[in-house]
Write a protein that binds this DNA or RNA. Structure first.
Lengths: 333, 333
DNA sequence: TTGAAAGCGCTAACAG
DNA sequence: CTGTTAGCGCTTTCAA
């Protein structure tokens, strides 16, 4: 099928606003106003220009629009691991809200590497109006970026930067109380990446609540937050006298579960295991994982709203209720 | 034109190539050449301009660069479900190869909705030099897009469009032979989305191989390719006399496994289950899932190479070997 | 209400 | 090898 308009004369160039203006018999500025700034032009003209534009199949060149204004109506979202279902929820939430506001969300995966994250941000920056970051970059790097583009942070706080975080303190309390109610007095925390603000915060909250409840807390790691790292993490935990372990996230926790099964350690009989974000898999691993229901989708929506200035709060904290499944149980006697 | 910088008055505008040229005492075109077209300028000048650019902190305005050339060095990748770990592998592969070629990959999630996919493509098109699509859009829609931007397809073929597909025929053969070798003679296929080319192709391959081996094949569905849909799919399968079921993908297969356990149906004792893409979760669901090792990461790399013209093959077919785990076993007697 | 014209920052002819 | 200049397509003053 031939969609060209100039009777078979070469590949037809895209229709510009000049074509529309000429065809409609008005100035380009009038055409521009009619199309994108209705109200500053007579109704008759507007309708006419619009009709012509439609007839010609005119599509504004977004790049050209962006050049003078500097605005592209695109938002960047960088996650540390796109294979982690937890981030999929963040993405879904952010994307829905971005679309609702007429923005396009572009997603990038930093694979837990701060350098890769920085590279992505560097590349995307010229094309986006702002960033949602689930970041592994250090504070200085984040501050540097802020001068270029507006930034909002997921699960991380930094002075001057808006953020949405899980309530690590309260969820830490829930976990510790859950474990103490089951009789546990010796607990190990399996750390996530050293560059993770969430890990540091979670760890601190856990430490505080353990102290308050007279629970001994052992810190193990850091470990990569992956299924594979679960083996080493499980072995490390078994080398302590902990009767329960809390993992940085579900990926690590499920990996731990696999290793424990492999080593013949009963869960929760011999060891209780707690995860961190209630991902896909937490319901069907063996045993189903006790974890925290991280509200990543809502976080995504809220972050985009903040970036667009539709919410002017600067530090939003979202609850992450404990979901008790079968990987935790009474302390072995 | 006023390109002055006005010594310290107000928020410093970004430094442009004009600033660099003036500071270096050369023409803008010389500065441009020195920076982006080395070789057509004297070594001395090049070095000098580069030094000045660095000192001033010059960063080319990508939007401005893209306006005349129409090229942004960005590639779009749209997947039907970003929460499906299978797609995460596709993304990883594509991203790595894009980065290696100096491209930025922007990712979008169509949530299995053709309309949403079309909307994403529409929005991204002005900003990307081409698309990798794991598409649910119909053939006509795809052809329309092709006139706008280069497109390559994952797990779908269409005349005139380059594609990378899993070898559905051979993987179908492997599955059928695996099941017949276990004594199965009555098999059900749990369909995926009606808009999925992969589903249609897989189904056809399965049908052909079943016929060849004298196996009765029942088609059930279509079902959404989700964990949740697994319940209905399992129930439908149990209502037939099939002794083995093949699911469109692992998400659905794992959902089936959950439902079967819930209903007290032994796997593989009473029913064997086969998945489709070997995702995260396939190793630790109960029982571990027999499935096909879909080479999504390699597909991602190859697709990007095709888009960049680094590979000029037009239809690449990748093998997806059967991975036999514990969800398949001898037919119940 | 409409038109003319000046840029947005960069690249690419075309001269010199 | 380097400088001058004309756009890329659009928005936006500034006049009329």
């Amino acid at each position: 099928m031939d969609h060209s308009d100039g009777a078979g004369s070469g590949p037809s160039r895209p229709v510009t606003i000049y074509d529309v203006a000429r065809e409609a018999g008005v100035a380009t500025s009038t055409a521009s106003r009619a199309l994108s700034n209705p109200g500053r032009v007579s109704e008759r003209t507007r309708a006419h220009v619009e009709e012509v534009a439609r007839r010609l199949g005119y599509r504004p060149n977004r790049i050209a629009q962006a050049l003078p204004s500097g605005r592209t109506r695109m938002l960047g979202l960088v996650v540390p691991d796109i294979a982690n279902p937890h981030n999929a929820r963040l993405i879904r939430g952010a994307e829905a809200q971005a679309a609702a506001a007429g923005y396009t969300l572009v997603i990038a995966d930093s694979q837990e590497q701060p350098e890769l994250e920085a590279a992505h941000v560097e590349r995307l920056a010229p094309f986006v109006d702002g960033f949602v970051l689930s970041s592994r970059v250090d504070d200085a790097g984040l501050h540097g970026l802020r001068d270029r583009r507006p930034v909002v942070l997921f699960n991380r706080t930094l002075p001057e930067l808006p953020s949405v975080c899980v309530d690590f303190d309260d969820s830490g309390r829930q976990v510790v109380e859950h474990l103490t109610s089951l009789g546990h007095r010796t607990v190990a925390y399996l750390r996530g990446p050293a560059t993770s603000w969430a890990d540091a915060t979670r760890r601190a909250a856990l430490a505080a609540h353990c102290r308050r409840h007279g629970v001994a807390l052992t810190l193990l790691g850091p470990f990569p937050p992956t299924l594979e790292a679960g083996a080493a993490a499980a072995d490390a935990a078994l080398a302590t006298d902990a009767t329960a372990v809390i993992a940085f996230n579900d990926l690590l926790a499920i990996g731990v579960l696999q290793r424990l099964e492999h080593r013949g350690v009963a869960v929760p009989g011999a060891l209780s295991v707690v995860g961190g974000d209630d991902i896909f898999g937490a319901t069907f691993c063996r045993p189903p994982l006790t974890t925290l229901a991280s509200p990543a989708d809502q976080a995504g929506r809220t972050l985009v709203d903040m970036l667009n200035g539709r919410i002017d709060a600067t530090e939003v904290v979202l609850p992450a209720p404990l979901v008790a499944r079968d990987s935790t149980g009474p302390r072995r006697s």
